[in-house]
Amino acid sequence: MGTFFGSSIGKKFVMSISGLFLVVFLIVHLAINLLLLVPDGGETFNAAANFMALPAIKFGLQPVLALGFIVHIIYAAIITLQNNKARGSAKYASGNKTKDVMWASKNMFVLGATVFAFLAVHIYQFFVPLQITHSAPELASGGHDTYTLVANALTCIPTVVFYVIGSLGLALHLTHGFWSAFQTVGASNNIWRKRWTVIGTVFAWVVGLAFSAIAIAMYFIGSCGGCN
């Protein structure tokens, strides 16, 4: 009869659980980023950032997070390829004029790829100097001065714009992804579908706009302007 992970619903289940796991990660990430806005020269933010670099988290949780991303992306690719095949090569000459279908729901792979492009640059800018090459500035009290690293990166307008695009792409991904994940695991009916959609839409835009706002705020707070 086929394996669980080979079945369409099994694959969607993996997308859903990995997606919801990434949502939880986003909440933690956003909470820490908000500390950037505490007006104490980055002391609180640095404390939180250095906590996240503790060995238990670095070697315990980070591999799980990486796995979450990898699984989500691999299954996204499998599902998208299979779906294109199922659709077939013959296209409709009169297009598709079905009303009331959310644009995001039909472009989840493109939106995911936007998030992925962002993720790659993001890892290169922060994760690599902080946790791999350790080239990020140091604090006198030990640990990295992540605040200065972030503040310097966001003095550059193209970087800020890139961060805003990444955040908005993520918001759109989640306007569909959030409720879709609950539908996929079966935790939905005519009443709950409306509730998940409202919760998901609010969540998506709060997260997307908050990340964008932080990037823009850091640009204006930052003193030493210009890209380097």
Partner: peptide
């Protein structure tokens, strides 16, 4: 699945 129908992504 065997007959080649796609995976539902809840577009509605």
């Amino acid at each position: 699945d065997e007959l080649g129908f796609g995976n539902c992504t809840n577009t509605g």
